[in-house]
Amino acid sequence: MPGKLFEVRWHGRAGQGAKSASQMLAEAALDMGKYIQAFPEYGAERTGAPMKAFNRISDEPILIHSSVEKPDLVVVIDDTLLGNPDIIAGTDENTIMVVNTVRDSTWVRQKSGFKGRICVVKATDIALEELGRGTPNTVMLGAIARVTGIIELKYVEEKIRDMFLKKFGEEIVKKNIRALHRGYEEVRCDA
């Protein structure tokens, strides 16, 4: 049998950074010794249009190149997408969903019809407070680390350092690491 795959589907709007977040997740998992894939779905590219990105993570080399049909984890960067039927496609009660929203999981369930476990985090608010910009990626990675255990914070911290230190300096690195930790601490799951 092929090795067990952990599959992730990201939902966001073009320009919100879901693609970069999926790449960062993959790179952190690679540093942990895992095999990874990260790939976006390309449609008509225009800022604000709904878009998807995907990850596969495994202990064994990943051979499959088809789209992710039954994700283990669904990440929703923008809660205005929750009414879109694509959000729950291929999910069941074993799927986990992490949503960037200021609302609670009851609202998310009502809006999406999702059957699995729902986790919410005010990622945009946290990003605004910590970074001064509403870019929720690092907060979401913190939440994902907490909820799934698929990545460990220290590896994401290293990635943040790699990506931001040269370009933006130590202060931005520290702010992003704080945002990451707040995502980890402040994500709330039902049941």
Binding site: Y35, Y42, H65
Partner: peptide, 12 residues
């Protein structure tokens, strides 16, 4: 190499 699947897909 397959467009998007490989050209834009991140792998090890």
């Amino acid at each position: 190499f397959d467009g998007f699947i490989i050209s834009h897909g991140v792998e090890v």
